[in-house]
Design a protein around this nucleic acid. Sequence first.
DNA 1: GTGGTCTAGACCACT
DNA 2: GTGGTCTAGACCACG
Lengths: 121, 121, 121, 121
Amino acid sequence: MSDYIFDNERPIYVQLVEMIRIDIVSGRYKQGEKIPSVRELALKMKVNPNTMQKALSELESEGLIYTERTNGKFVTEDSAQIERIKEKLASDKVASYLDSMKYIGLSYEDALEYLKKAEKK
Amino acid sequence: MSDYIFDNERPIYVQLVEMIRIDIVSGRYKQGEKIPSVRELALKMKVNPNTMQKALSELESEGLIYTERTNGKFVTEDSAQIERIKEKLASDKVASYLDSMKYIGLSYEDALEYLKKAEKK
Amino acid sequence: MSDYIFDNERPIYVQLVEMIRIDIVSGRYKQGEKIPSVRELALKMKVNPNTMQKALSELESEGLIYTERTNGKFVTEDSAQIERIKEKLASDKVASYLDSMKYIGLSYEDALEYLKKAEKK
Amino acid sequence: MSDYIFDNERPIYVQLVEMIRIDIVSGRYKQGEKIPSVRELALKMKVNPNTMQKALSELESEGLIYTERTNGKFVTEDSAQIERIKEKLASDKVASYLDSMKYIGLSYEDALEYLKKAEKK
DNA sequence: GTGGTCTAGACCACT
DNA sequence: GTGGTCTAGACCACG
């Protein structure tokens, strides 16, 4: 259990969803691109193919990928959908950033200030 | 073990340090204020007093608290030191925010944009 | 309790720190050299491993030793740091020498004179 | 046992000898001066008069004080003797200074150097 | 009651 | 075998 990358607290398939989702919205998997087979992905991530299948189903119902029977799975062509998910993720990050700043006693203005200072680095 | 609040991956005393540190920089424990006794805190957090003691020693060597023999432990009067630690924490948060945004394919400018949009909510 | 080497007035771990610190600055433990394991040292000094561990942690935070996980603890490679501590110790010795001379009614010049006379022996 | 000034490891009378000896060689008790009575000294030092008596006997056999029957005890008029003892003490201090410096890996020359540097402070 | 120290003994990850 | 962590339980000085 040395190079194990999954958090024990949450279902593995959820964590796979998060990883692949980010691969898509970040452009590491391009719009319309074929993604590797379930087996291949399962092997790479060292999970059971069923688990990987479940993750991909989630992403499909989310509209980020679609299946071409006998042909494989592809990233959606719907760039607006990708964008929507990306914004959702980004908003989550912002919210969590603001929360953590608030938690240490800093306001929205402080959070903005710190971010601006960070640019110079 | 249902209500256990600690992450198994990191030492409990480190997590205690982080929690109490935030209590101080956020002002939940005020400058100069007496903090509860080691035993009391240990009881509250359900850890061994020695573990709590170790956490508090860390905070003492960090300059956030000081000890009055037989009297208890107190938050430092040195507000500059508290501020220094607070800035350190805030910088870490900013860096991690920027990292996570970059990870989903967004630039510094995007991160700034999203933060500004978040204000209105 | 015949061969007990520790002074009851001060914590054992502090005395261990002092002893090992001197072993390092004096060069008995060389720069970069592996030091014996915690358990070994604890056995040799007849203290509990935890006590020895605490002493070594102190020395680590002082920058005189560092830890290689699963491999052991080593004297720092930073000879400047060793030198800094050595000078600190030496200054303390000088101050205490001058104090004791002053206590028996001798001036700085007397202290210097006595030291020069001592060379010939 | 809060303000107890004696080291448990060595006989109290020996420690009294050392203290009074220093009072004499340092000039706090002047040459030829009458010193307080045994009872008075014993009270002041919170020791049994017998213990103090033993200490003073030691100092007498050392030639630092002498007794005038029915009149009390006095610091010797023999300034050469005082000087001899003082030099003995000073030599001890020098030796212990050099030992401690050697112990941390410093030579006679280093010890001299450090002493010279200390003057400026 | 406060903090501080120490021991004994256990378990863990890593290699 | 290495260091690291944690617990349980004890004792101490101080006031």
